[in-house]
Design a protein around this nucleic acid. Sequence first.
DNA 1: CATGTGAGTTACCGGTCAGTAACGTAGTGA
DNA 2: TCACTACGTTACTGACCGGTAACTCACATG
Lengths: 212, 212
Amino acid sequence: MNAANDDAAGQEPELAGARPRVRDRIFDTACELFYRHGIRSVGVDAIAAEAGTNKMSFYRSFPSKDDLVAEYLREQQREVWKHWDTAIAAYPDDPRRQIEALFEAHLVAVEDKACRGCALGNAAVEIADDEDKDVLSQLVRHFKKEVRRRLRKMAREMGARDPEALGDQLMLLMDGGYFTRLAFPGNTGPIAALMPAVRTLIASQLPPEGAR
Amino acid sequence: MNAANDDAAGQEPELAGARPRVRDRIFDTACELFYRHGIRSVGVDAIAAEAGTNKMSFYRSFPSKDDLVAEYLREQQREVWKHWDTAIAAYPDDPRRQIEALFEAHLVAVEDKACRGCALGNAAVEIADDEDKDVLSQLVRHFKKEVRRRLRKMAREMGARDPEALGDQLMLLMDGGYFTRLAFPGNTGPIAALMPAVRTLIASQLPPEGAR
DNA sequence: CATGTGAGTTACCGGTCAGTAACGTAGTGA
DNA sequence: TCACTACGTTACTGACCGGTAACTCACATG
């Protein structure tokens, strides 16, 4: 799908000042605009203009806007997993600390002033289910299922009494943080109380302190 | 704002088969369509057609689509508070049980097959902040602030050690339930683990069992 | 009967949207 | 030199969108 990235004539030029290929400029611009303003409210004209090109170059790189949107959602997904893995990498053999680190990272991400919530979840709000957007909503559903799976897995590895329940509860907190963010600027929202909730729910699923 | 509801010629006709006024038909239709498909993806033509009338009658009843949207958000707000008050009415002097009843009701509402999440929160995703939609996003912000205030108030009345934190944590769970709902059909999502989380967080904020 | 009102109908406007056709051009490599 | 690639430019289509003008009709009330 992203085969257009390789240079058909050989190796990519490594010059520092080289202008990126138009496809990449368009894609990066689109990702930023989609996230900031929503998918439906950003037209292909606006994307092309912001990327310093025009609509024709857009349609030479992408077969349709919907394809670009799907690519955008896949990219957001990749970035989430990258951040996710980075956050938990510090505690390779301590699932409990992994969860805490994951939510600490989530907290800073959500409190960032540029945060506009969860790109995938927001997309689920924007795309009508009944239309021909099955590909997009399926992308979102798959992503959310994977989030749930990973949280439950961490809860299980941590030794939770009911790992499915704990994973789900953590997911509620995580998505709640994303969702409330849209109505509260910066770090002024309920997200401030995230970490105590995480620790309380974790603790309630572990044997009492002395037994560990 | 909704003064058009009263009949200028006297009392409303009480006939059972009487067709409602066109404004009400349009408004009810719009509320349903907005909630089901999102605000941006529903045009005034579609609303008018679905209400059995046409665009001109629409613009005789509403000065603009944005006005209708604002009215829609206010209506959703009113319904939320109505359900809220109904849910907690059974335990007038037991804030703790009020919270539990509130979340039990929330659970039922979210697991309903017609649930598409929180109308106000979804609107916050759809409306771009920078545009001239200040009225709409302010409506959403005001609503979310009020949700937070009420939850914190209940936590305080319950005697929580840190009522602000508990209220915020409950809000994260609540909005997390709404948000995850969009990616999981029916009652298959993480919302299933809501009630234990609520009870655990409440319990962690109360003195130990024997002391009560 | 006259008048006002609520509502249906048709036609239109200007703007935006996704998507396409046709052409021009600078560079690059055989 | 020739051809090919990547990109820019202008102009266009058809659909849709929010919003308006002008007309018609049923009906209720004085």
